[in-house]
């Protein structure tokens, strides 16, 4: 028997790993992957509750999250490519023109 709490703990740990990656890595690509990790952690929590409550709706929402992730990655990576072409860098700390 798998406990609901175990699933939620797994989700929380994956999420925090994603957060840590997003905050500490300089490479925009890896930051992006961290975001994917966070989205997956959220999906996992949702499915755990779906199973627990025998509900179908969270699965549909999880579907939407994946579609959203796909759209986001397509646009995000396109931005990264465009920025790299122009600036020759993928270091987040070099991309700080948007400020006062």
């Amino acid at each position: 028997m798998i406990a609901l709490q175990s699933l939620l703990t797994l989700s929380a740990v994956l999420f925090v790993i994603g957060v840590c990656g997003f905050i500490t890595r300089r490479n925009v690509l890896i930051m992006f992957m961290s975001v994917e990790l966070m989205l997956n952690a959220a999906n996992l929590a949702m499915l755990a509750f779906a199973r627990h409550n025998a509900s179908m709706d969270p699965q549909v929402v999880a579907m939407f999250v994946m579609a959203l992730a796909a759209a986001e990655v397509a646009v995000g990576l396109a931005i990264i490519v465009a920025v790299f072409r122009r600036r020759g860098t993928v270091n987040i700390d070099d991309l700080r023109n948007l400020k006062w």
Partner: peptide, 30 residues
């Protein structure tokens, strides 16, 4: 940022633990 992330993990932990005793998933899916 790292400290804050770990604190958030700690919060998740208390939230999960504070929800009550371990509850197993139903053995069979609907």
């Amino acid at each position: 940022g790292l400290i804050a992330a770990l604190l958030i993990l700690r919060q998740f932990y208390s939230a999960i633990k504070g929800a009550g005793a371990m509850t197993g998933l139903p053995p069979r899916a609907a």
